[in-house]
Computed example of a mutant assay.
Amino acid sequence: MKRLFYSLLLLSQMSVCHAATVTLPRAEQFELRAATTDNQPGPRYRILVALPDGPAPAGGYPVVYVLDADLVFHSVVETLRLQSRRPLATGVLPALVVGISYPEEDDVILRRAVDYTPTPAAQPAADMSATMRSAGGGADRFLDFIDKTLRPTIAQRYATNPNHQVLFGHSLGGLFALHALFNRPQSFTHYIAASPSWWWNDKVMATEESAFRRQPDAARGRALLLTVGEFEQSPSRFSDNMPGGIATLTRRAMVDNVRALSGRLITMPGMRVKALELTGENHLSSLPQAINRGLRFALEP
């Protein structure tokens, strides 16, 4: 009986320990509101920031801006901290990570569909939710928030390097990264577009790309990494379980679009372009590799 009592006591103590809150070291969060437009207050954003372990270098920390921070902020931070412990051995510099997310009470699916896209979807399909079909077109306003509100706030609060600024986006976030590159290439030095949703409105993106390529000087000193998973277009044993099945993969042509886009942009003078096709990965399983390879691409010493 005594042994049973102590066993139950130990289990209760373990339960209490497991309920403790886990925090990310050297990280903080705060809220920012976009600028007022048409006498209406701008939307609110939840900003997550993680500092490197060591002091800032003389020129300030490089900064990695991460979209969809509610999903990937912790992954980016821990991947970066692990890789940057020995920069000369790993080829990755320590950097400040800034995640852009939304207040918990907001509809994240709706807000990202608005913020990350230059227009509503060109051809809303059955595999898209009703929310996605009706959203889109806020990319320029969101880019204004980043350029005019968020980046100045980060520069004021932390020691940052204005000449080493990285934007990371996946899926619709990857589409936004390309929109930012084509329209305001000087906003960032490095753009990482992981599995970009070019299909959202390919005619609009093609127009933006053409205008960008007609201004080769705008690309000088910029760097772009494109990533895509093999099974984002090729059939796999999971294809039938996604909305629309293989027909969706074929229609979106994620791999073909990345190949074609990188082939066109790689000829621009003064711009570094790299494309990675990730073997055996799908739209979501490719994300950890995109984070890992993207950090190495953008933060080499």
Results as ranks from 00 to 15, higher is better:
residue 3 R to S: 06
residue 4 L to P: 03
residue 4 L to C: 09
residue 5 F to G: 00
residue 5 F to Q: 08
residue 6 Y to M: 12
residue 13 Q to V: 11
residue 13 Q to H: 10
residue 18 H to G: 06
residue 18 H to Q: 07
residue 19 A to I: 06
residue 20 A to V: 10
residue 21 T to P: 02
residue 23 T to F: 07
residue 23 T to S: 05
residue 24 L to V: 01
residue 24 L to I: 00
residue 26 R to Y: 13
residue 26 R to A: 15
residue 30 F to L: 11
residue 32 L to W: 04
residue 35 A to C: 04
residue 35 A to W: 06
residue 36 T to Y: 03
residue 37 T to H: 09
residue 37 T to W: 03
residue 39 N to A: 07
residue 40 Q to N: 08
residue 41 P to K: 00
residue 43 P to T: 03
residue 45 Y to A: 06
residue 45 Y to G: 06
residue 48 L to C: 11
residue 51 L to S: 13
residue 52 P to D: 06
residue 53 D to K: 13
residue 59 G to Q: 13
residue 59 G to H: 12
residue 62 P to A: 01
residue 64 V to Q: 10
residue 65 Y to K: 07
residue 66 V to L: 12
residue 70 D to F: 08
residue 73 F to S: 05
residue 75 S to V: 01
residue 77 V to Y: 13
residue 85 R to A: 14
residue 85 R to V: 12
residue 87 P to L: 04
residue 87 P to G: 03
residue 93 L to G: 08
residue 97 V to W: 12
residue 103 P to N: 08
residue 104 E to V: 05
residue 106 D to F: 15
residue 108 V to R: 14
residue 109 I to L: 10
residue 110 L to W: 15
residue 111 R to T: 03
residue 113 A to F: 12
residue 115 D to M: 13
residue 117 T to E: 02
residue 118 P to L: 02
residue 123 Q to Y: 12
residue 127 D to R: 06
residue 130 A to G: 15
residue 132 M to H: 14
residue 134 S to P: 11
residue 137 G to H: 04
residue 144 D to L: 02
residue 145 F to L: 06
residue 146 I to V: 15
residue 147 D to K: 13
residue 148 K to V: 03
residue 152 P to S: 04
residue 153 T to A: 15
residue 154 I to L: 11
residue 155 A to Y: 12
residue 157 R to I: 11
residue 157 R to L: 11
residue 157 R to A: 11
residue 161 N to E: 07
residue 162 P to D: 02
residue 167 L to D: 00
residue 171 S to F: 12
residue 177 A to M: 09
residue 181 L to G: 00
residue 185 P to Y: 10
residue 188 F to R: 05
residue 190 H to T: 09
residue 192 I to Y: 06
residue 198 W to Y: 09
residue 200 W to S: 01
residue 204 V to K: 11
residue 204 V to F: 13
residue 206 A to C: 10
residue 208 E to C: 10
residue 208 E to H: 15
residue 208 E to V: 04
residue 209 E to W: 15
residue 210 S to A: 13
residue 210 S to C: 00
residue 210 S to F: 02
residue 212 F to R: 03
residue 213 R to E: 01
residue 220 R to G: 03
residue 222 R to L: 05
residue 222 R to G: 01
residue 223 A to H: 10
residue 224 L to Y: 14
residue 226 L to M: 08
residue 227 T to I: 04
residue 231 F to L: 09
residue 233 Q to H: 07
residue 233 Q to L: 04
residue 235 P to D: 00
residue 237 R to C: 08
residue 237 R to W: 14
residue 239 S to M: 07
residue 241 N to M: 15
residue 241 N to F: 15
residue 247 A to V: 01
residue 247 A to L: 05
residue 247 A to D: 02
residue 249 L to S: 07
residue 251 R to T: 01
residue 262 S to T: 00
residue 264 R to A: 14
residue 266 I to Y: 13
residue 266 I to R: 06
residue 274 K to Q: 12
residue 279 T to I: 06
residue 283 H to K: 10
residue 284 L to D: 12
residue 285 S to C: 08
residue 285 S to T: 14
residue 286 S to T: 04
residue 287 L to F: 07
residue 290 A to R: 00
residue 291 I to S: 12
residue 293 R to M: 05
residue 295 L to I: 03
residue 296 R to Q: 09
residue 297 F to A: 00
residue 299 L to C: 08
